[in-house]
Every structure is written in C-alpha cells, then in structure tokens.
Nucleic acid binder design. Structure first.
Lengths: 186, 186
DNA sequence: GCTACTCTTGAATAGTAATCAAGAGATTTC
DNA sequence: GAAATCTCTTGATTACTATTCAAGAGTAGC
C-alpha cells in the first residue's frame, strides 16, 4: 500500500472503532463495555483493536480527546459571550459525557493517556474561566481560586447525573458562580 | 453453635474481612484490589468471603458504612462549632477515603448497597450544611442550594487528590463557602 | 451418637483484557 | 511479472477476574 492510502484507511478504521467505543461507553459505561463489544460495533475482530490502540484506556483517551476538540469548537467566542453563557456552554458539553466522569478519574490514576487528556481539558477550561472571572472584577489570585472551585463544582455535580435534569444542574452552577462573583444571587 | 457465640465469631470474622478490604481498597484502589487479596489479608479462603458478603460491591458498601459511622461520630457538635470548623471536619474525614470517590460513584450505578450508603452520607452531610448556612443568614431555599453546591464542590475537589495537599484543599473550600455566605473572602 | 446448622474449602465456570504466531492483501521493487 | 515488504487480520491462547458449586468439617442441641 502507498503511504497516503494506508493512512487514509487506517484513520477511517480508527474512527469507526472510536465511534463504536464512544457509543458503548456512553450507553453502558466504561467498565461494562468489553473490547469484544467495541470490536463488534466497529465490524472487526476483538484483537484487531490492539493494532490501533495499545489498550482499553487508550481507547477511552481517544474518545475523550475527540469529544474535547468538538466541545472546544462548540464554545461561544469568549470576547462576545457573557461568563454565564460560557459556563452554560461548558456544562452542556460535559452533560454528554457525564456518564464517564467517574471512570475518567479512576483510570487517570493508571493510564498516562487518560490523565493527559483530562489534564488538557482542565487547562483549557481553566484559562477560559480565569479570564471570565477577571472580567467580572476578581483579581488574578481570586480568579485562579474561583476557576478551580468552579471546575470542582462542575465535576462534582456531574458525578450525580442519575436523576437530575440539566436545568437544575445549570441553576445550581449559575447560582454558585453568581455568589462567587459578587455575593448576590445571579 | 449457640446463636450468641455464632453471632460473635461471625461478627469478628466479618470485621476482619472489612479491615482487610478497607486497607487494600485505600492503598491500591477498588478496581485493582482482588477478592483473593482481601481474603488473604483476612486469613480466609477466597470464596469464604461470599458467605459473609454477597459480592465485591457489598464489601465496598460495608467499608463505607463503617467509615461513615466513624466520620459522623468524629464531627464536632453542630451547636458549638462554627460552620468553618464543621466543614473542615467533614473534609478531614473525606480526605481519608478520597481515593475511593470515583469508585463509589462508578459502583453506585450498579450496586444498590453502595448507592444506599452513599445516599445516606449525602443526606447526613446535607442536613448539617443546611443548618450551618441558615445560621449564617441564608434562607431555606438558598441554604438548600448552597448545601448541594458545597457537597458537589467537596466531591469534585476529592476527585483530584493526586498531588494536592489537604491545606490547599481546605483553603479552596473555605474560600468558596465564604463567598457563598456573604460574597467576601473568608 | 444423631442431626441440624454454620462455616470452609478445592475445584470449576464464565467472563475479561491482552498476547502471540500464523497468515492474507496490496504494493513497491527489482 | 515474481519476489519481497509492509500493513493488517484472525483464531487460539494466556493469565486474571468475580462468582458458584458440591462436598465436607466443626460444633451444638437433642
């Protein structure tokens, strides 16, 4: 095979595997999803996955990485949107992967790949939030703390996604950052 | 065996198994700990555990339940301690089981026993926090939201316990609830 | 001593992620 | 055009897991 076409088909197959993994991880959870099921969904043999990904954790990392790119792209322009709009956009993106919150943190301990994507996610959102808090009058140090607190709040909220609706989730987060910004309800 | 002595030795053995499980879960994590290792630590055969506990999740639930009792008992008297002291006490207790935060939420989805203990934990801390926020001037509705937000914040903070020291953790949470209470740094 | 009950155990089952050796398929190279 | 090479696939296998099962100790009441 010539290099170009190889890479094309390789990327295509890779994408199909990630598609299958994403669908199953979100529907059934990370632990409950077997590599065999992912392979079945992608139309390949169970062990064929290991030619594309070193292991299951790396497959999770690939799913997260793609989601992260899409999420960042879907966020509103920071210079035009209000902090509330930005935070709501982040929440909306995270809602879709809420199911994986616990698994991501559990696997980050073992897998460098998962930890790396997760850290990258934190870094990008942290930058966004810090600027937003600074625009709202907090100083540099306060903004750093406020951003960290907001991230923890959002992740904590997503740990319990069973019954809670997204509207209640939004209200809770907005109320809290409203308090952080000026001590009065938003 | 007479009923009394049976129950005595049964409880003793049960406790030894929970001891072993607690030690290993906290040291190596829930997923990485095998039932065989727990059994070895307790000095029984691998399968003997199943006479005392229906499964691994129930073992986790038992560990959590005991920890919860100890934690509640170790908290200061709500009528004497300040809200800050109470929150710090809760944080100190949770620090010891931070390693299990992700696992608890992941397993709560599958195991009724784990979900039940976790819910009980939330209920008790929620009551505590609500009263504390009310004492600080928030009304009933605000206190409910503030309590929920604080719980999410605390759990979110514990998801990332790798490098962070407890002092930084304490500062972050105290700063945030200070903001929630009156909009100025605590 | 018999019986019933509580508990233990070794062996077995079904499932998992991951590995390995053997081999297709297509393409470049000679 | 044949051979060699690289990319990919696959069936069988390994080592590990939680859990189950059938059979058997140990002890206490009768």
């Amino acid at each position: 095979m010539p290099a170009t076409r190889t890479h094309l088909t390789r990327d295509l197959k890779r994408r199909e595997i990630v598609d299958s993994a994403e669908e199953l991880f979100l529907a059934d959870g990370y632990e409950k999803t077997s590599m065999a099921a992912v392979a079945r969904g992608a139309g390949v043999a169970s062990n064929a996955i290991y030619w594309y990904f070193p292991g299951k954790d790396d497959l999770l990392a690939a799913v997260l990485e793609r989601r992260l790119e899409q999420a960042i792209a879907a966020l509103p322009d920071p210079s035009e949107a209000s902090m509330e709009e930005q935070v709501l956009a982040v929440l909306a993106q995270l809602d879709q992967v809420a199911r994986l919150t616990a698994a991501v943190h559990e696997r980050s301990r073992q897998s460098e790949a998962v930890a790396s994507v997760h850290e990258s996610f934190h870094g990008q959102i942290d930058g966004l939030l810090r600027r937003a808090f600074r625009d709202r009058g907090l100083d540099e140090a306060e903004s750093a703390i406020a951003s960290e607190a907001t991230m923890a709040l959002v992740e904590g909220v997503h740990l319990h996604d069973q019954k809670r609706d997204t509207a209640a989730r939004d209200r809770l987060v907005l109320w809290t950052i409203g308090r952080i910004v000026d001590g009065s309800p938003a």
